[in-house]
Simulated assay, not measured.
Amino acid sequence: MKRVLITGAAGFLGSHLCDRFIKEGFYVIGMDNLITGDLKNIEHLFKQENFEFYHHDVTKFVHVPGKLDYILHFASPASPIDYLKIPIQTLKVGALGTHNLLGLAKEKDARILIASTSEVYGDPLVHPQSEDYYGNVSTIGPRGVYDEAKRFMESITMAYHRFHGLDTRIVRIFNTYGPRMRLNDGRVIPAFIGQALRGEDLTIFGDGLQTRSFCYVDDQVEGIYRLLMSKEHLPVNIGNPDEITIKDFAEEIIKLTGTGQKVVYKPLPQDDPMQRQPDISKAKEVLDWEPKVEREEGMRITYEYFKSLSSEELYKKEHKDFSMHNKK
């Protein structure tokens, strides 16, 4: 049985990857320090004989007994609320955490896939964004802690590939959505749906003409799996090129939820990208992959998930105490 280590396993995307690899017959070792992850996302896996969980911070030395065939590094805060609250930890997991896991992959002779992001393109001057675009990123802005952590991840991964001959993969993930997203993590889909379910007005930052492209989680996981099993070691965009303005998307949410909320506007945060759309030509060519789930279908499933949450979950604020992590 092939063995895979998945970091960030209790997070939104990490938990879906655990499900996929269990389904594919792998022995899955999940690892998470639970700063932003939640055990409820993977509690259904604890009864599985081919799943185990390590509560561990990958910025510390990582040891996993036995062989490892694959490592997927998905441990990182991924929402603006999180990485603005824990900026140093965000940088550390991108730098020290990635270094530790590359070292583990070298020790175990394992293939490693690291989760990069469309944020490496910053506020892009090229549209849509292809893998050969180097980006327009502010290193000293508030979002730089996340953007530069991911850019460093790519750099050190390629250094290990070239210098040590390590078998590496790099996925650049564009906006992904689906069940198990945190309701109050600040990202646009859970924010809009949460506001609609609570009867609040929908908040748009800026004029709403900025664009995003949303990929359903099942499509994202399929792309990641195909990339891991491919021979491509250079970065590959995985996302949905179906672009929409935030203003139009807010109207879609109001129609989906059947609520009559207004849209209210607030100032745009610093360095928030105005356009986000992946060029997936490489994924189509190299992986024979493209998204299959239409936004209407994916959003219906996601809305049903959020509707199923308890009133306590719907109205609670983020309660995680980040104070200790900010001091490290």
Rank of each mutant, 00 (worst) to 15 (best):
A75I: 00
T257Y: 01
C18F: 03
V293M: 07
R182F: 09
L234R: 08
F152P: 01
K320N: 08
F322G: 04
K266N: 02
D207G: 10
Q210C: 05
K262P: 03
I254K: 11
I35V: 14
E285V: 12
G260P: 00
Y83S: 09
K262T: 08
T211E: 03
G260E: 02
M274I: 12
N240Q: 00
V58C: 14
R169V: 04
G103A: 08
S79P: 00
S155Q: 08
T203I: 14
R111V: 04
D147F: 15
K231E: 03
G208I: 10
D272H: 13
L102A: 01
H161P: 00
T259Y: 06
Q210G: 14
E285W: 12
F205K: 14
Y216N: 04
S15D: 02
T98N: 04
T59L: 03
K40V: 12
S130K: 14
K40Y: 12
F21H: 12
F46C: 05
G122S: 10
T203C: 08
P142K: 13
G223P: 06
S118G: 14
K307D: 02
F192W: 06
V264I: 15
R300I: 07
F192Q: 08
R151Y: 03
G260H: 06
D19W: 02
V4C: 10
Q48T: 05
L202W: 02
F214T: 07
L183C: 10
G194R: 03
